[in-house]
Nucleic acid binder design. Structure first.
Length: 337
DNA sequence: TTCATTTGACCGTA
DNA sequence: TACGGTCAAATGAA
């Protein structure tokens, strides 16, 4: 399946490639078909299952911490049974850590997503889209669409194979070159370049080139685990705690499929437009996005006055409803305290 | 033993 | 000629 953006540099047809292809062919000849498929299945599982499981575990941990916090809050404010302040702080810290872990697991896109929605254009001159598409010239001379993303993690749900690293002139951090692991198996031409932001080393600037064709193979689709489904828990209009507002792995309905862009999104981006958000799409909807460097995440907090989760990400408070409601009916959102 | 990563070298472009 | 992108042998990890 060809995509204009997938055209590979013509150097790949050099004699060197013949040498490399020979090695690859040898490797293939030595391995049985069964082993290859097992390996393939393992890799595909690695692509999403661990993140899924980790997300679920962290969400569980967060629920437990939230209950603990609630229990502590029910303790009398004074008297013999009063909760030590440090314990409350500890519970808060656990919640924050869980939030950040979840954010990291899903590309930490929600902060940018939420802020992109709430943020007013006059907030800061340095606002730049976290994602952009433009045409650039590749080394081979051809042009291709690329997508640029800012993320707090290099993980995007795909399995990448690093094939190079280069110190970039005038840049403090090297640029890492990745191609899809399934380039040889499925001819997937997706590539990406990852470089740490100089302004904020915790932020990765990721350039995507080409389109993932590996994820379209029927056999892989059949082997791959169930798509990452968002479960916000049962409707809790009665206010009963029923689960985390964070996504978790669930076979229930409620899967929301986002529109696709010109490039293949990662499975998680496809399956998880809600809650954790998709920085690419959301940022494309808005013209400006706040600088990631100035954002600080904290736990969403329950506002009993109007029954909403409020999320302070450093740009003033953002209503959790605003993030979730963008994609999914609020009835799906299980609010918890 | 297999596979992924590292890293120096090579090549094309500006 | 400088720079960026890619290759592929060497190396290390599982």
């Amino acid at each position: 399946m060809g995509h204009p953006a997938c055209s590979f540099p013509h150097r790949l047809q050099s004699p060197k490639i013949g040498k490399r292809q020979k090695k690859i062919d040898q490797t293939r000849a030595s391995g049985s078909e069964v082993r290859a498929r097992e390996s393939q299945g393992r890799r595909m599982a690695m692509a999403s299952a661990p993140a899924c499981a980790a997300s679920e575990l962290v969400a569980k941990g967060r629920r437990s911490a939230a209950f603990l916090q609630a229990m502590l809050g029910q303790q009398p404010a004074s008297g013999a049974g009063a909760t030590p302040h440090g314990v409350q702080d500890l519970a808060d810290e656990i919640l924050r850590c869980c939030d950040r872990a979840l954010a990291a697991l899903h590309g930490a896109t929600v902060a940018a997503a939420g802020s992109a929605k709430k943020r007013k254009p006059e907030h800061g001159p340095a606002a730049t889209p976290a994602t952009s598409s433009k045409r650039i010239r590749l080394s081979g001379g051809e042009r291709a669409i690329r997508r640029v993303e800012k993320k707090w993690t290099m993980e995007d749900g795909f399995i990448w194979r690093k094939y190079g690293q280069k110190d970039i002139h005038g840049s403090k951090y090297p640029r890492l070159y990745f191609r899809c692991t399934y380039k040889e198996d499925h001819g997937c031409m997706a590539r990406r370049q990852v470089q740490q932001s100089e302004a904020d080393p915790s932020v990765y600037l990721i350039n995507y080139f080409g389109e993932h064709t590996c994820c379209r193979d029927d056999d892989i689709v059949a082997e791959s685990p169930a798509p990452f489904v968002i479960n916000f828990g049962a409707s809790t209009r009665d206010g009963q705690p029923s689960g985390s507002p964070w996504p978790s792995c669930n076979e229930d309905d409620g899967q929301v499929v986002s529109e696709t862009s010109d490039l293949c999104h990662s499975p998680e981006e496809k399956e998880l437009p809600a809650c954790m958000g998709n920085v690419a799409e959301l940022s494309e909807q808005s013209t400006t996005v706040p600088e990631l460097t100035s954002m600080s995440m904290s736990s969403p907090e329950w506002d009993p006055s109007d029954g909403r989760l409020v999320w302070d990400i450093g740009f003033g408070e953002i209503l959790f409803d605003d993030i979730i409601g963008e994609f999914t009916p609020l009835d799906y959102v299980g609010l918890f305290q």
